[in-house]
């Protein structure tokens, strides 16, 4: 067997550095990461990277920060599998492999000038944070902004400090709910769908951007359609096992769509008839 070095294989990783970590909850850890020579990742909100740790493997992880932050980017990782468990052991200064960014993110050019309605369930806030912060950093380029956030319990809420800032801003309407309250919780209790009817919006110029667990989509979409938001103005991000990121390995395929390249962000109008998408 002969061997040849490949200088431009798609599997080559970039050696990135962990700049900062923070434990967010028992399950989720936050990482700020810088690429070699502080080069910009140059991603679109909603894209993902493949995180690599040799000896363990690779995992697709949503980018949590806005591209307006140029010298580094954020990941927020739930400990659920082999790679993510190993990632949780990483601390400041550790090296980590990055491939990407991959996929199609949120359609910023289409969203510009329009009203935005963000709906995040659970970990869905992670990819949405990249877009919310982008919109906040370019606030005058967008119309009204509504954010709904839902999580299981108050202590599972991610980015609490930032949520507090969003809440205080006069140019953002924010509301949140928990499935199950604790004694200190003074806010809403119930499913995120229960908050949608009360949101004041102009359906003609509102684009809804929804990210949450797979089960959430059909219920949220039903409420959005009841609000008369056109189907082509609803965007969502689908979770699949994006193993290679190159549109080839087949794991993330839904009918003839490769989630890693054609998504993970899709317009509802485009995928509503695709079997197994939602």
């Amino acid at each position: 067997m002969k061997k040849q070095i490949l200088n431009n294989s798609e599997y080559i990783i970039k050696k990135a550095k962990v700049v900062r970590t923070k434990k967010l909850t028992d399950l989720e850890k936050f990482f700020e990461i810088s690429m070699p020579n502080n080069e910009s990742l140059d991603h679109d909100p909603g894209q993902f990277v493949e995180v690599s740790l040799f000896g363990v493997g690779e995992a697709p992880i949503s980018i949590a920060s806005s591209p307006t932050m140029r010298n580094s980017f954020d990941l927020c990782v739930r400990r659920v599998g082999k790679v993510t468990s190993e990632m949780h052991k990483l601390e400041q200064g550790d090296e980590i492999g990055i491939r990407g960014p991959f996929g199609k993110g949120f359609p910023i050019r289409i969203l510009e000038g329009n009203d935005l309605f963000f709906i995040a369930g659970g970990l869905g806030i992670v990819p949405l944070r990249s877009l919310i912060n982008y919109v906040i950093d370019n606030r005058r380029d967008f119309g009204n902004v509504n954010i709904l956030l839902g999580c299981k319990t108050p202590d599972s809420m991610l980015f609490g400090d930032e949520v507090e800032i969003w809440q205080k801003r006069l140019d953002v309407n924010f509301n949140c709910t928990v499935d199950k309250a604790d004694p200190d919780w003074a806010g809403n209790v119930g499913l995120i769908t229960s908050l949608i009817p009360g949101v004041n919006l102009d359906p003609d110029r509102t684009f809804a951007i929804v990210v949450g667990p797979p089960i959430m989509y059909k219920f949220v979409i039903k409420e959005l359609i009841a609000k008369k938001i056109p189907e082509r103005q609803i965007y969502l991000s689908l979770e699949r096992h994006m193993k290679c990121g190159l549109g080839r390995c087949g794991h993330c395929q839904i009918e003839d769509i490769y989630c890693c390249q054609d998504g993970p962000v899709f317009c509802y109008d485009q995928i509503k008839k695709i079997r197994g998408a939602i």
Binding site: M1, K2, K3, Q4, I5, L6, N7, S9, Y11, I12, I13, K15, S52, L53, F54, G55, E95, I96, G97
Partner: peptide, 21 residues
Amino acid sequence: TLIEYDTKEGQNMKAVVEYEN
């Protein structure tokens, strides 16, 4: 084999292709 790695000092690697004429 897609990659040969060495983690003694960080995430070092080289991408390779194995072939036979």
